[in-house]
Write a protein that binds this DNA or RNA. Sequence first.
RNA 1: UGGGGUGUCGCCAAGUGGUAAGGCAGCGGACUUUGAAUCCGCCAUCCCAGGUUCAAAUCCUGGCACCCCAGCCA
Length: 564
Amino acid sequence: MTEKVDPIPIKTDFIRKIVNEDLKTGHFNGVVHTRFPPEPNGYLHIGHLKAISTDFSIAEDYGGQCNLRFDDTNPIKEETEFVEAIMDDIHWLGYDWEDRLFYASDYFPQLYEWAVQLIKDGKAYVDDLSAAEIREYRGTLTEPGKNSPYRDRSIEENLDLFERMRQGEFPDGARVLRAKIDMASPNIVMRDPVMYRILHTPHHRTGSEWPIYPMYDWAHGQSDSIEGITYSLCSLEFKNNRELYDWFLDQLGIHHPRQIEFGRLNVTHTLTSKRKLRRLVEDGWVNGWDDPRMPTIRGMRRRGYTPAALRNFMDMTGVAKANSLVDFAMLEFAVREDLNRHTPRAMAVLRPLPLTITNYPDDQVEWFDVPNYPQDKSNPEMRQVPFSKRIYIEQNDFMEDAPRKFFRLAPGREVRLLGAYYVTCTDVVKDDAGNVVELLCTYDPESKGGRSPDGRKVKGTIHWVSAAHAVPAELRQYGVLFSKPNPEEVDEEGQDFLSNLNPNSLEILPDAMLEPALAEVEVGAPFQFMRQGYYVKDPDSTPEHPVFNLTVTLRDGWAKARKK
RNA sequence: UGGGGUGUCGCCAAGUGGUAAGGCAGCGGACUUUGAAUCCGCCAUCCCAGGUUCAAAUCCUGGCACCCCAGCCA
């Protein structure tokens, strides 16, 4: 008999094909070295995750390495706080750059030398045009630009001016260093791109040492080259920049990595624009960068998403040359799939309805052994759950006028209390307004453990918590942040993405009741509240006031059936 | 109206001349002390129009749609 072997998933994305081809031809002598180059100006979000997983996993798959390099060439926007947060998030995801932590700012001296070299080669010049003039001279999408009047300065003058820029002699914006390429290029990136701007702003790492800072295009490729990167993977919008990336490297005649662009990942009902995420935080639409509704790594961590789920989601969505808008349901699937395997079960009643078992002894308490991992036969771990005369059940597990297909509690109907007894509803207690405030039931002592000796079938099984032992808790029920799949799509002119904010993205359940085993679990501990969803204990919890976040609900087959 | 890129099921995504993988969602059904999980089954002719070929999603021609580029941002 042949054994069934799980096929090794072979990824066939276009990047790996290029790598395979290089391996065959020996283009980079078999070296696969990538880098993840975040700018430390904000928190990582789900869009970055695609880049992180692509950069790290390709290196991993080929036995290569991936560096972490902070692209810190703009001191106005960048802060050390973000450097720390980004490193923390990447490690949490399970990726490691080992001792290869770099900063583009490490290369400022080298970059400066290379700039001098280009000037000497007549390939770069100092331009005195103002920012507005440069824009004007650049031309438009359909018209070529024109040469700056300063384009043909002598090498000596350029050298002198550039040196003085570096010495801090000129104010911000007075001059720039530009590459001398082609003002008529159909690719606007090639119309004498700016290499350095004057910025008398202290840098988070180099302090006040540099009054000039390199632009992305000038810094990035050279940084890749210095680090011996072979594959410089980036997103689609840098496609046009590749021509310049190649040009600089060719002029310098240094190690030339291969830039490959791939499509960005977007998820429905969410946003990844840093500007807009900042707005949500700063204007108080959410409670900070780690709000569980935020698509930031920090938010998803607090929400209870796991590294395994997120990484698997990346594999599910793939890498391709087109930007994508993936259904939020796919993310939820990945989260459930991982959580289902490893998460212990427990009982919690979200919206309690008191139920009294009239024929159960008044002061009796029974402790039932209930499996923590019923989904995993190989893990027999049990816990004890107290049962008594007065319990809470879920409000929506009872219906006074129940349709035939409703398998839960209704007047005269019998259900199984998970792990305990069969119970039959005999009476309904209402308040003056007619609301159901309590259920009276009888139990079948023969059905202890949830099985009856006569073998009669009970279709419904519901969860419960003993009232005397219940631990009150706050539950935070999270839904999608935006009502529309694409938050940018507004109904009326003049509106913006904020008009699509889901008013029900957070619902607080202040009076949930937990089984006692949940009383003192650690913050961050995940549980499946049976028949409801996966929850994780929130850092806002105090010993007197536990708080749990809804990570993701369970699929709800009843919700579907009910619609018919 | 310039240049670059992309168009395969509702959403991702394989396929690169030989007769459309897989996943998500959806829809049936089995099983069930979670209406969960699990398990079975169903679910596309490839943006359009011509052409080449015995044969095209794959090649050619011409359209169309969408995305990116005119920061001294990255």
